[in-house]
Simulated assay, not measured.
Amino acid sequence: MTQEQPTLTRSEQKQAELEEREGLKSRLLEEEALRRGHQTRRLTYDTAIITINSQDCLFKDMNGPLSSAANMEICDNKHVARSLLKANGLTVPASTYVRLTEKDKIEDFAQEIGFPVVIKPNNLARGEGVFTHIDSVDSLHTHLEKLSKLIKDETEKILIEKQFIGDDFRFFVVDGEVLATTKRARSNVTGDGIHTVLKLIEAKNKLRLENRDLKNFLIPTDPAKLGRLFRQGKTLDSVLDDGEYIEVRDESNIASGGDGIDFHETVHPTFKEIAVQAIQSVPGLHYGGVDVIAEDITVEPTEDNHVVTEVEFSPGPLSMFPWEGPPRDMAGPILDFYEKTLNS
């Protein structure tokens, strides 16, 4: 007799889904290690021991023994990381770090730097709690209330920054070399003159389900999450013209249903130098992701056409599963780095 599996509560189901999703980075590294003939031992969904040059190395996701807890803490603290970037001569958004309770200071700073502004938590990931295109004092206070409900602690500090209008790019850097450059395009659909926006989203989500990474990050159909669509005078029932392209969300990260588009061969080389410099701004950080917003990533960077927004300690495998362009490996270069370093 087959024993029935226990029914999971909703929270248990969400945790199981999270572990399955988060474990992808670790599994990709483990698969590459096994392909190279290294011994591996799985500990948890996101940790494994990989034996490299006779040394047992503990990895969490793709971060190994040379990725320190201090590195992670600095990268996760957007304000501190940004201060290091700025001190190293990189162009960053005008921003301030202030408690949620200090509404007057937040409002004064927004008016000082000029709208539109962005507010965001200091240490959450995947775009959670990031509110963009705030274009008035009333809108600012409305979104501060939303952020308060999310954080649930008004003594917490948040970032408020001048919004830079451009496209969002992620650079993947290992040991002083940029190995992938990917545009993080906002959630979008392209019309065919026949189907509604809703049907176009559903069709695109079917394709995303075939992608090992994107299957976990579908485009939502909840109208409350599609503000950009409605600001353009469209609804889920709108039928787009054949070839008409429209972005449906403001968020530009993959977790929000965005697309990864490869730009590695066309990015201006000076932007790659900036990405390497950003990683080196965090002492002891050997590899990671760098987020840049730029008007045009293919032209030479100036102080006015881009900003460096974040350094990512544990970037997702965006370049390995792009929506457009060739896949670019992340796990292999990280193992190359450890094989070289542990052999020296």
Rank of each mutant, 00 (worst) to 15 (best):
N188H: 06
E295F: 00
R82S: 15
Y97D: 05
D296I: 00
Q55K: 15
T2L: 00
R27P: 05
D304I: 04
L150W: 07
E161R: 11
E30K: 06
N71K: 06
V130M: 11
I119P: 04
E20P: 06
A110R: 03
M1C: 04
K225L: 13
V118R: 10
H268M: 01
N253T: 02
R36L: 06
N88M: 08
G129A: 07
T9K: 09
Q163D: 15
S187D: 10
K60T: 15
N211P: 03
E310G: 03
Q3F: 13
F337G: 02
V311Y: 14
K225I: 02
I297W: 11
E161S: 03
T51D: 07
I74N: 00
R27V: 12
N211H: 07
V92D: 10
I261C: 13
Y97A: 09
E154R: 10
Q277D: 04
G176L: 05
F271V: 00
L124T: 08
A125S: 15
I52L: 11
E202K: 14
E177G: 07
Q55F: 11
V290E: 04
K149V: 01
D108W: 05
F169V: 09
T2Q: 12
N77W: 06
S148A: 15
F172Q: 07
G23I: 08
R82W: 11
D262K: 05
A81G: 00
V174C: 03
D250G: 07
R249M: 12
H38P: 02
S319V: 09
E244K: 00
E339C: 02
Q15F: 12
E112D: 11
G257W: 06
Y338R: 08
I158W: 08
A185D: 03
V118A: 02
L29T: 01
I158Y: 07
K105V: 14
E156M: 10
E339P: 09
L150P: 14
E247L: 05
L18C: 08
H286Y: 06
H79K: 10
A275V: 06
Q280N: 07
P121N: 07
D296N: 08
T40Y: 00
P317E: 05
I254M: 08
G23E: 13
Q13G: 11
E73A: 07
A70L: 15
Q39C: 11
K14P: 15
A48I: 12
T47D: 04
L218E: 15
L198W: 06
P322E: 00
L18A: 11
R184H: 01
E161I: 04
K225S: 08
V92L: 13
T155S: 15
L43P: 10
Q163M: 13
V197S: 12
S67I: 08
I134R: 02
A48E: 08
E22Y: 03
Q15R: 02
E177A: 11
G193W: 00
A255T: 03
K340S: 12
P220F: 09
K157E: 04
T142G: 12
E32S: 11
I151V: 07
R41Y: 13
L43R: 09
A94S: 15
R27Y: 09
L318Q: 01
I293N: 05
E312S: 13
T91R: 09
S238G: 08
K146T: 13
R328L: 14
L214M: 14
